[in-house]
Design a protein around this nucleic acid. Structure first.
Lengths: 146, 146
DNA sequence: TTGCGTGCAAACGGTTTGCAGGAAC
DNA sequence: GTTCCTGCAAACCGTTTGCACGCAA
């Protein structure tokens, strides 16, 4: 199979894989485009289902192995939303955070700037350099209070 | 087996169980005292090991069931430190948070007051009532930077 | 042609469940 | 005596691994 553009970011990521000496397989392409095509964070299972729709013989272990590779290379980022499983998004989509409503389950994205004061305070008070890329905050959303 | 004091907090929790109509079994007593006797957060496996030392026939499923009950009743609190397993501490031990060094693995406790500004900002900007009891922040500790 | 990447199947670790027997009340 | 709780064993779910084959380079 030849490399083909799968979306705005797709080609860049695929080329990067090859430049680093990794083989560009259809499975890897499809995992990449599933992640890049997802508006929000996507789980391994969801990626697997999406890839399987086009390519029914994929095995979920291949998806796991691909995700592990992409994570090592810093091309995708993991987020643990406390579901007992991890979710992925493209690394270049930037740092953002999650407000998870523990009643309705909705997930809201939170701008990073709100966390700067906390980050500074942690460094100042504890000498701790917080990596705030994976933050999930639980609580009640506007509609679910009271 | 008769109820016996297992520590400063033990008796209160055991009595509360009985008041609510639950049976006070040795297994439940021992799970409670394992949690209350632990200086920091304790995992299910660690609780199980501790109980088994005194009472070798306990089954880990009993530990899981007891922890689920205590959690439902609000007597213990879960914390997800991103280890793929959950840790417990007594609910009355109050709210506190964790700074987890992703290099050396050490866990530092963080005073809740540092989070008040964030909590206020979330409410003001997003109408989101954050429940900051379960927060885990990853990063590099003072000794592991650079 | 070479060896990396894959599909398959089995194993893993933490957790949950159905059941029958035993203990708390 | 009744009912709840337990131990046991098996199932569960997400994830990882060993192996031999096949495809990207």
């Amino acid at each position: 199979m030849t490399t083909k553009a799968t979306g705005k970011q797709g080609k860049g990521a695929e080329e990067r894989l090859q430049e680093l000496g990794y083989r560009l397989t259809p499975q890897r392409s499809m995992v990449l485009s599933a992640i890049e095509g997802s508006p929000d964070h996507i789980s391994t299972e969801e990626i697997y289902e999406q890839v399987k729709a086009k390519y029914p013989n994929v095995n979920i272990s291949t998806v796991y192995r691909t995700l592990e590779l992409l994570r090592e290379l810093g091309m995708v980022t993991q987020t643990d939303l406390g579901e007992g499983r991890v979710r992925y998004h493209p690394a270049e989509r930037g740092h953002h955070h999650h407000l998870i409503c523990s009643r309705c389950g909705r997930i809201f994205e939170l701008d990073e700037s709100l966390l700067y004061p906390l980050k500074e305070a942690l460094l100042r008070e504890y000498g701790f350099m917080a990596d705030l890329r994976h933050l999930a905050i639980f609580g009640r959303c506007r509609d679910c209070q009271g």
